[in-house]
Design a protein around this nucleic acid. Sequence first.
DNA 1: CTGGATGCAAAGGGTTTGCACGTTT
DNA 2: AAACGTGCAAACCCTTTGCATCCAG
Lengths: 129, 129
Amino acid sequence: MSDFRNSKQRLKIIEILKNTKSHPTADWIYGKLKNDFPNLSLGTVYRNLNILEKMGLIERIDFGKTFDRFEIKIKKHYHFVCENCGSIIDLNIPIEYNLEEIARNNTNNKIITHKIQFYGICEKCIEKE
Amino acid sequence: MSDFRNSKQRLKIIEILKNTKSHPTADWIYGKLKNDFPNLSLGTVYRNLNILEKMGLIERIDFGKTFDRFEIKIKKHYHFVCENCGSIIDLNIPIEYNLEEIARNNTNNKIITHKIQFYGICEKCIEKE
DNA sequence: CTGGATGCAAAGGGTTTGCACGTTT
DNA sequence: AAACGTGCAAACCCTTTGCATCCAG
């Protein structure tokens, strides 16, 4: 197993992810980083996102959309996905660990964790109508 | 809005999806169809899968994997995903509509539906260890 | 006959990767 | 010095699409 060094690019990616709620794509992060690293390549962003995921610092969100999105791993939470504009919003409701119990009683597969997504129309899109 | 005609290929795709629990990829379906339609093209499979989704007959499952998977839409249910082999298994536990109520009380976004995935190691992979 | 469906192949588009060079330790 | 990280560009790979032809209604 290789260990990781610090790189300015990587640290900046972490900083960006810590300071946004927007669950950005690799390309969006790339755009932000361009200011600090004019020669930055998209490949580096992707490589670092994969590394950060392996390090357990960030989480990949990849349901239902064309590109992956990323977020800093802080506290477990569920997501709301707007079916109109595609934006992803963190929800602040309690984690239902009892669901895992229910599932365990129903299957012989070993259940480790779970995710929930809620779908609908976000506040902003409702206003626009 | 356009309406759809019947095509032998499309009917066969439905039949295949009705008779498998495996949440197949487009390519897997393509392989199955090849027997009946030697000249079949992958593009046709993709086109039909998109049409069937629009018709509301099938559902696209696209969390966390490189290719999309599909299943016949029957009864709403949750999925279990094996983090080792990637297989997807239907779970037979009750749908927790009260979760949507809880979420509604927490956000101004309009919540229409929700999905849950459980992650872990499937029975088969446990046996292999 | 009309417009959707197909096959074929090329194009898309997000992500990964090989290579030579630059940096961290 | 050794090994990881970066930039660049090409390669990947799943999916979509244009076009001429076919076929269902």
